[in-house]
Amino acid sequence: MKLIDSIKKDFNTMTLVLIPVAIAINVVIGQIVVLLRLPVYLDSIGTVLVGAICGPWAGALTGTLSNIIWGLLIDPNAFPWFPVALFIGFVSGWCARFGLFRTWWGVIITGFLVAITAAVVSTPIAVYLYGGITASGSSFITAFLLQTGRDLVTAVLSTNFLVEPVDKIATALLAYAIIRGLSRRYLMRFPRAENVLPAESKK
């Protein structure tokens, strides 16, 4: 019962209004990144942000709904990848709870942990639904690994481990930069602000 109550507390009205904005940030920045032909996705900045200041459950919901919105609006191929986004929000929420969002190096660790999780969760989806080859450029790495005799799961997983950290560390750092740009008074309106506020002002 305690767990349910604490989850409920995370979903106050501020959280419920922040989530749509966070999803819109995911989508619009994701599109700008495509427009600028950058070699990253950066489509989960909002998810990490919500995870950090509203808790892991709100982060997980943001990730999940983000993929649903991407599917509704841009490309239904996004739907089956929702578990990846769910875990991105969930893991960044837990990292923030362990104090990793108070320093920039903690944020880099968060980005790395999120990347590992994303790599593991996306592998079965890529393998089962798409046979390991998706439309992204990283599939060349997968093909190369297959050619050198690795089995499919190993090849996809290794590719993900190679590709994910850069994107997720950049994502986490951008989310951190946003949090640093917000006032203390503003942040305090969110249920898990204490996770990101510097230790000395905790009182």
Partner: peptide, 20 residues
């Protein structure tokens, strides 16, 4: 709350795209 999030996201995105 989930329906609210999805509906308002769908309406916020076009505005944010225009702003972008």
């Amino acid at each position: 709350s989930v329906a609210y999030i999805l509906a308002s996201t769908l309406q916020i995105i076009p505005q944010m795209q225009a702003k972008a």
